[in-house]
């Protein structure tokens, strides 16, 4: 039980369709995620991977099955499961500093104003955004916004960091930069992270395990891949690494041979 940090037990999600049978998005999902583990969930669009994340976050409830965090069943959203959304979701009327402060203030009301300021600044500095802390989200780049989103999520000391295609809306250079940020942060402050992605390289580079989802409807876990690569990882050096290449090929094989999907 000690290692059973985040547990998904026979999770199923159905959406009612008027006049027809329910649409089964995901079904029979069983998964155990350990503390400080980084797990990617990868699959074609429509495989219910975001649905799965929403159920872990509690923003959406499963139709049947159970999700436990530290032995406690999840019944709704809470700050122990912070989410980094694809569209950063910073409040545009607050500065970078105020966006993070709002979250810390709400989750840790016991902090003195000095402790509060120190904590907010610590997380701003963690994502190297010190010089931009008084800027509004409209004044900074997409990659910077996403870094603020990560800082805000981590600042409330969540048990699990949930990331819903966090770098999907960014160009590939910015994306690589943010992946490096995330790996660097993970070296500093250990976190349990679940990342939804459709990027094969991202999945291998970031994760300890890659969960591969079959296609919907009624999607479920197809295969689980262990990525046995030392950290810190260097994206350039890895290009020649046998383990990296093996993992990449395994995922590509799964996505494009076993569960290939026609573009709709």
């Amino acid at each position: 039980m000690k290692n059973k940090f985040l547990v998904l037990e026979n999770v199923e999600k159905r959406f009612p369709v008027p006049g027809k049978k329910d649409y089964v998005a995901v079904t029979g999902v069983n998964l155990e995620i350990q503390k400080d583990e980084i797990v990617s969930i990868i699959g074609h669009s429509g495989c219910g991977k975001s649905t799965l994340l929403n159920m872990i976050s509690g923003l959406d409830m499963q139709t049947s099955g159970h999700i436990f965090l530290k032995g406690k069943e999840i019944t709704g959203p809470g700050p122990d499961r912070a989410v980094v959304f694809q569209n950063h979701s910073l409040l545009p009327w607050l500065t970078v500093y105020d966006n993070i402060e709002m979250a810390v203030k709400k989750v840790m009301p016991e902090l003195s104003s000095k402790e509060l300021r120190e904590r907010v600044e610590k997380f701003i500095n963690l994502v190297n955004l010190g010089p931009a802390k008084d800027k509004y989200p409209g004044e900074i780049s997409g990659g910077m916004k996403q870094r603020v989103g990560i800082a805000r999520a981590l600042s409330i000391k969540p048990d699990v960091l949930l990331m819903d295609e966090p770098f999907g809306a960014l160009d590939s250079l910015t994306r690589a930069n943010l992946q490096d940020h995330l790996m660097r942060i993970q070296q500093k402050v250990k976190n349990t992270v679940v990342i939804i992605t459709h990027d094969v390289d991202e999945a291998v580079l970031l994760s300890d395990r890659v969960i591969m989802m079959t296609n919907g409807p009624a999607a479920t876990i197809g295969e689980i891949l262990e990525v046995n690569l030392e950290r810190p990882r260097d994206r350039v050096a890895l290009q020649e690494d046998h383990e990296y290449i093996r993992c990449r090929e395994a995922i590509l094989e799964f996505l494009y041979k076993k569960f290939a999907k026609e573009d709709e």
Partner: peptide, 11 residues
Amino acid sequence: DYINVARILKF
């Protein structure tokens, strides 16, 4: 998304 942020923070 703003509402989801608020829900996670339990506003």
